[in-house]
Design a protein around this nucleic acid. Structure first.
Lengths: 147, 147
DNA sequence: AAAGATTGAAATTTCAATCTTG
DNA sequence: CAAGATTGAAATTTCAATCTTT
């Protein structure tokens, strides 16, 4: 049992990669499903999270940086959040090139619902792992993500 | 060191989930980048893999089952593969409702190039992990994916 | 009606090109 | 010209509705 990994040595190198992508896909789907019940997607929740963390509003370019995506993505994501009434675009008095994405009252309420739905879904996903397992997983993922 | 997980106990429950999604995103991006150099995407390579494994052709519905996605997805994926000249749609003599996706000669060559690019990228991704690490990761991911 | 597949619309994301403002 | 943002096009995926064949 301690040496059960020897069987894994016979696996093709890509099996673990497939397992990682598959597990992440499953987890992602579960988060999306939980968030859909409160009318959000993970992308929308993460954007709202950044706005809340920043105190309520951010220039679109900075939001793109914090979400680690390109600016055109944020433009369209904010379009959808604005259509949902969760975010409003405002002008920056200091620089008229800048657009601020500002969370609305409805957006704050949606964020709170989404945060709770997300945390419950995450507890569900981790429920089969011991704290030691979770710590090991964190360490291994950190090594893997290292370029 | 053996007890380093105690620090992790203080983490928010979602940190490991974020790490998982982030690691998978990084790995996925690297595979896509490697495959883009040979003119493929991961979705296209996986479809070609299924066709090769099945002996050269499959009904679109069965291909959808094996790729674990909906049929309309496969319809459009095969559209793109057909536009690339890697797959051809054929009629099934036994049931005229059925369309077979059949890999072409060009498709077989593209698959071979993609397979090699993928394996190299996967070795690169796993290069920082020992065989024991890889085995642990497999075990943990299997527990996580369990519904 | 049921099975197989397709179409059209929406969400998400990226890239290249463009527009506005500094 | 630099920066900030937007637009248009493409890839990917899902869903609902539709079409064809059995």
């Amino acid at each position: 049992m301690y040496n059960s990994y020897v069987n894994d040595m016979e696996r093709r190198p890509g099996d673990q990669i497939s397992a990682l992508l598959h597990a992440a896909g499953t987890v992602h789907s579960r988060l999306e499903a939980a968030l859909a019940e409160v009318g959000l997607s993970l992308a929308k929740l993460l954007a709202l999270q950044q706005l809340v963390d920043a105190g309520g509003s951010l220039p679109l370019g900075q939001l793109a940086d914090r979400l680690a995506c390109v600016k055109s993505n944020v433009t369209q994501l904010v379009d959808r959040l604005e259509a949902d009434g969760l975010v409003a675009r405002m002008f920056d008095p200091k620089d008229r090139r800048t657009r601020l994405a500002s969370i609305t009252v409805n957006g704050q309420a949606a964020f709170e619902r989404g945060r709770q739905a997300r945390e419950q879904a995450e507890r569900d996903v981790l429920q089969g792992l011991s704290p030691e397992n979770i710590a090991q997983l964190s360490d291994l993922l950190a090594k893997l993500a290292r370029p």
